[in-house]
Amino acid sequence: MATGHAEEPVVRLRHPWRWVAVAVIGVYAAVLVKFLVTNDALRWDLVSGYLFEESILRGIVTTLEVTVVAMVLGVVLGTVLAVMRLSENPVLRWTAGIYVWFFRGTPILVQLLGWYFLASVLPEISIGVPFGPDLATWSTNTVITQFMAAILGLGLNEAAYMAEIVRAGIGGVDKGQSEAAEALGMSPVVAYRRIILPQASRLIIPPTANETITMLKQSSLVVVLGMLDLLGTAQAIYSRNFQQIPLLLVASIWYLAMTTVLTYGQARLERRMSRGTPGVAVRTRKSTIVRGGAR
C-alpha cells in the first residue's frame, strides 16, 4: 500500500571513510602531542621565559616598523607604476614594465644585499644637475643604514608586485564605468578619483592585505643585513645559549599571533568594502587564499 511506504523510516547514507580519517589523523596528532609535551629538549620553560623578554619585544617593534614602512613604499610606488603602465604614453608604459621585470625577476635576498653594499660602487649620493654641478652630497654609508637598506630592498620589490595588483584592479572595473563617467563630462582625473579607483580598490584591497601578511613574514629576511628584528633577535640569543629550536618557537609564536590578527582584520575589511555588491567579499577571500598559496 502506498500510504504504508510513505511512512517507512529513512536510513541515512553512512560515511565510514570519515571515521577512518579520524582514526588515522587522531593517531598522528597523538604522536605529535606526545613529542611536544614529553621532549625535554624543546625546553618549554625557556620558550615561556623568552616569549616576553625585552629584546624579543624590541625585535617585534622592528619587524612591525620594517613591514609598515616597506608596505607603504610598495603601495604608493606600485600605484604610480600601475598608472604608468596603463598610460597612453609609451615611454611611461615601458619604464614601468622594465621596473616590474627587473624587481620581480631577481631574488629579494639579492636586492636586500645589493642595497646594503651600494656604497662599494657608489661612495657618495648627491642631488644636483645630472652631469652638472651637485647641490648636496652625502656619504652612501650614512644614508644607507641597515634600516634604509631593508626598506629599499623590501619596499621596491613589493612595488613591483603591487603594480600588478593595482593594474589588475583597475583593469577589473567594467569599461562601461569610465564611459559613463566620460559621458557625464568628467575629466580623466575626476573619473579616476571618483569612479574608477573606488571600484578598483575593492579588487585591490584583499590581495594587498595578503601582501601585508606576506611582507610581515618576508621581513625576516633582513637578518642577512644583521638587523635585530624578531628573527634576528632570536638568532642573536641562540648564538649565545645554543637553544635554537626553543627560540625559533618563540619567534614562530609571535609571527603566528601577528598574522592571525592581520588575517582577521583582512576579513573584516573585505566585508566593509563590499558595499553595494552583495556576495563579492566571500568570492575574493577565497581567491586571495589561493593566490597566497601560489606565491
Binding site: G176, Q177, E179, A180, A183, G185, T277
Partner: peptide, 18 residues
C-alpha cells in the same frame, strides 16, 4: 568640457555601483 551638454543613456545602464 564639451560633453556636459550631451546626456547619454546606455544599454547596460552603467550606474556607479558604489
Amino acid at each position: 568640457l564639451a560633453r556636459r551638454d550631451v546626456g547619454m543613456v546606455f544599454q547596460r545602464f552603467n550606474l556607479f555601483p558604489h
